[in-house]
Structures are given as structure tokens and as C-alpha cells.
Amino acid sequence: MTGNTAADQAQGNTEIVLTAMRELFKEKDITALDRYWAEPYVQHSPQMPNGLDTLRAVVPTLEGFSWEPRRIAAQGDLVFTHSIVHGWAPKPVVIVDIFRLDNGRIVEHWDVIQDLTFPDATVSGNPMV
């Protein structure tokens, strides 16, 4: 029963998400949507509609975009990333993305976004990521 455990699924899904995000956002390869995402794509982000058309339209227009994952966790069909993102909003933001995969494709997405606050401006003095 090797190669089919929950840990194997989580590892495989993590690799898919990292590759998908790199190809789409860093390399701006829109065809990554055809390889790593699938319709119906359910979007829970309050600023984005369901489906992949918005990503197809927005990604080529992003300037100075960078996605810097700092923490990644996976459980079953879910992959969680905790990242610093530049170029999505006017100022750098910290985003927790949650991706759900089905048959090796990203089919659902949630996110939580906060403006990046540097450690010297936090009450605790700790970094956000």
C-alpha cells in the first residue's frame, strides 16, 4: 500500500500547489491554469468570482508580483500556505491560502489577507510570517 497513504497524498498535493503557483504567478504562464486547476473552480475569496476566467485576465496584468511562501502544511486534499505577497495589493500583504485539490487539480480556494506589519511595529515584536 505504498504510494497511496494520506502522507503521500499531502506531499503530492503540496508539490502540485507549489509548481502551479510558481508557473502561474512567477513565470506568468497562463497555460498552468489548464494543467493544475480544474473547473468548476470554487472561489471563496470575497474579491473574486468562481471560475478561472478572472485569473486568466488578472495574472498577465500583475506588475512586481511575488509570492513568497514561508510555511506550508497539507492534510488530505487541502494545502495551506502562509506567504508574503507583493504586487497583489498596493502594499505588501500576508496571505494564508487554502487550496483544495481533486484528482491532482486545484478546484477550490480560500484566503485570508492582512497588510504586512514589520516586527518593530507589532505589540509582541514578532514577525507576522
Rank of each mutant, 00 (worst) to 15 (best):
T122R: 04
H82Q: 06
M48A: 10
P49C: 09
G3Q: 12
K26P: 01
T122H: 02
G104C: 06
G64W: 00
L55T: 04
V85A: 07
T81K: 02
M1F: 06
V107M: 01
N103E: 12
S83E: 07
Q43W: 03
R100C: 02
G104Q: 09
Y36N: 02
R56T: 07
T81E: 11
I72V: 15
I95M: 05
T5W: 08
F25L: 12
M128H: 02
I16G: 00
Q47E: 13
N13H: 14
S124C: 04
S45T: 11
T14W: 00
T5K: 10
T19A: 13
H82T: 05
A74V: 08
I30L: 11
M128Q: 15
R56H: 06
R71T: 09
A20W: 04
W67G: 02
T19M: 04
M21V: 15
S83N: 12
D29L: 08
T122D: 05
G51N: 06
Q11L: 13
D34E: 12
E23V: 04
F25S: 08
V123W: 11
L52A: 12
M21R: 02
T117I: 15
T81N: 01
L116P: 10
L18T: 03
F118D: 12
R70K: 13
W37M: 01
L24I: 12
N126W: 07
F25K: 00
P60R: 09
K28T: 09
R71G: 00
A57T: 14
T81G: 03
T2H: 15
V107I: 15
L62E: 07
V58F: 10
R70D: 13
L55C: 02
V17Q: 06
E27V: 11
K91G: 10
V123M: 15
N4L: 13
G104S: 02
S66D: 14
D77N: 08
E27I: 05
R35F: 01
A6N: 09
E63Q: 13
H109C: 06
A38V: 04
R71W: 11
A57C: 02
R105Y: 04
M21Y: 14
L24P: 08
Q114G: 13
P69H: 02
M1Y: 05
L33V: 04
P60Q: 08
V112P: 01
Q114Y: 06
T117P: 10
I16C: 04
